[in-house]
Every structure is written in structure tokens, then in C-alpha cells.
Write a protein that binds this DNA or RNA. Structure first.
Length: 180
DNA sequence: GTATCGATTAGC
DNA sequence: CTAATCGATACA
């Protein structure tokens, strides 16, 4: 995932995601049917669905199914690659070494704050174009040891193993952060 | 119109 | 463990 702004480039590897299946998935926003809020996930694949949650945070998804069919993937954690200092600034935190880097993008709300992602700015963007400020690409990294677990933070359909992460990667969310 | 809750996070 | 915080949604 990359984001270019003011001459600097932020980039990070996607290390944890969750699948939300569509209208039949009780935990998905699409379960309520198509609304103004969730319209992007009913559109063509590869577009950003950004929603606001808990009065504080944005979360980023990418639409995954063909036009007219709902389905998306939520980005839950990234491994920062470039633009570390700018991410820290956006998050409003100070870094005291590489061990603090997981405070930047480990969590769906955190990664949006680090990248400056908002609903107004990014909802509906084509993440495959590369021409926009925010895009997703393949850098050739070959992921091994992908683990599937139940999704985090939901109550409906909480049993399905639809959370996917890189096993052993220290940037996945849900593990206690080392402080200081 | 009011009430409730949430695909979270920070702080105690 | 709980508070914060507000848009979306459910309900009268």
C-alpha cells in the first residue's frame, strides 16, 4: 500500500486483513442492503470503502466483488516501509526506536490515521489505478505462513475464520503493545 | 423525534 | 478494565 503526499511517499506491507462477505454476512455493513454509506462495496472491485466508527476512527476496506455484488476486505494492520517519521507525526506519537513502529499501523483505525485516510478524501477512490494518491500494488513479496482466525471486534458471525494474517509478523494487531 | 450501538483506541 | 465520541440505525 502506498500513499503520496507533499512529495513524500508512505508505503507499508499489508500483514492482516478481514473478509466481509456481503449481504448474507451478518457482520458486514452490506447486510443492511445498499445505502449511501456503503454504496462502494456494491460497486466494481478495487475501490476504497472508508467508514467512520466509534466517533473517532476511520477504517479502510477495498471492494472485492463485481459490480452489483457486495463484498470487501478490511485492512487491519500494516508493516511500515517508508515514511516512518511522517506516519508518527500523523499519529501524534513520538518514536523511541523500531520497537515503537507497531504503534503506527497495527490496527484498522491506526493505519488510517498514519496514512491520513478519511471518508471525505478517500471513499470511492480507485486503489488499483496507481494514479491517485492512495493505491495498492504487488511488490513481489511472497507471503508464507498465512494464518486464518475468527474476525476481531464483532459479535455477529464471530465464529467464521475470515481474518488472515502473516503468522509471526510483529505488526499484526491484537497483541499487547510494548510501551515506551 | 429519542435511544442505542459500533469492523476502535488510549489510558488507568 | 472503562471512557471517549458521533454517525448510522432502530424504534416510537
Amino acid at each position: 500500500m502506498r500513499h503520496e503526499e507533499h512529495g513524500s511517499t508512505l508505503s507499508a506491507r499489508i500483514v492482516e486483513v478481514e473478509a466481509y462477505l456481503g449481504e448474507r454476512d451478518p457482520a458486514a455493513h452490506a447486510a443492511a442492503g445498499k445505502t449511501l454509506r456503503n454504496a462502494v462495496i456494491f460497486g466494481p472491485p478495487g475501490y476504497a470503502y472508508v467508514y467512520f466508527i466509534y466517533g473517532n476512527h476511520f477504517c479502510l476496506n477495498v471492494s472485492c466483488e463485481r459490480e452489483g455484488l457486495a463484498g470487501c476486505v478490511l485492512f487491519r494492520a500494516l508493516e511500515p516501509i517508508t515514511g516512518i517519521e511522517e506516519m508518527a507525526r500523523a499519529r501524534g506519537i513520538e518514536l523511541h526506536g523500531p520497537k515503537d513502529w507497531r504503534k503506527l499501523t497495527s490496527g484498522p483505525g491506526r493505519l488510517c490515521e498514519a496514512f491520513g485516510i478519511t471518508r471525505v478524501r478517500d471513499n470511492g477512490m480507485d486503489l488499483t489505478a496507481g494514479a491517485g494518491s492512495l493505491w495498492i500494488g504487488d511488490d513481489g513479496y511472497s507471503a508464507r505462513g498465512i494464518v486464518a482466525t475468527p474476525r476481531i471486534g464483532i459479535v455477529k458471525a464471530a465464529d467464521k475464520p475470515l481474518r488472515y494474517l502473516l503468522g509471526g509478523n510483529r505488526f499484526v494487531s491484537g497483541v499487547k503493545l510494548l510501551s515506551r
